[in-house]
Amino acid sequence: MSFLTLENVTLRFGGLVAVNNVSFHVGKGEVFALVGPNGAGKSTLFNLISRFYDPAEGDIRFEDKSILKLRPDQVPSLGIARTFQNIELFEQSTVLQNLLVGRHRHAKVGGFAQTFFTPAVRKEEMEHRRIVEEIIDFLDLQPYRDKYIAGLPYGIRKVVEMARALATEPKLLLLDEPASGLSLEETQDMIFWIEDIKKHMGITVIMVEHDMNLVSAVSDRVLALADGKELAIGTPKEVQSHPEVIKAYLGSSGLDDKKEGAKK
């Protein structure tokens, strides 16, 4: 059984081919990285998997079932969670409330029971909270639990967004540039966390990342993209030394410059 499969996926915006006939599959328990220059179509692939975009051609299958018939809000119920490149948190809510929204797909009590806050609702709320607290412990977010997002630094927001995705208890986690804008230390933490997510939680991770240190530290396999086309696929080493990849990067601005250090 294959876990996630993209088959000949093509997406066009008007005349622009954002994703051009891309195929790959990700095995269960893998950490899979998407790399490539800006505009290569990496985030677009995430948006395709999240069903925000409809592919013009091709098929996307999760656990052997095509997801192309699903609405975006049905994707999480399969066990797919994601973060966003530009952080999409609920700014006017606390960290805790943000994470509890992550529990949405596990909410079972009906609206009527919620209106009267029956004991069943209370019981379920406590259970959601217990799971959220585990994630808070795992990602060291205790000091920020009751803080509003609007007042948090960028690095913490990145972690909160990942925590919120974990709160959905996913099988597959899509991380869009988890280390961009993070300090060296924070990036180190991120490396440990991603390894733990893979090893201890058994969650498959696909990430878009420019920081090649992070990519080579945690990824099992890497897919390099340029202009929506697949350049190379393989272990981090193989891909980094692949002539097509080097050419694509030199054509833009060189591999190391792509590390977007402490941006913002």
Binding site: F52, P72, D73, V75, A81, R82, L89, F90, V101, T168
Partner: peptide, 11 residues
């Protein structure tokens, strides 16, 4: 606060 991430969480 964010329709997009609400959707991505299954709302």
């Amino acid at each position: 606060d964010s329709e997009i991430s609400a959707q991505a969480l299954g709302v």
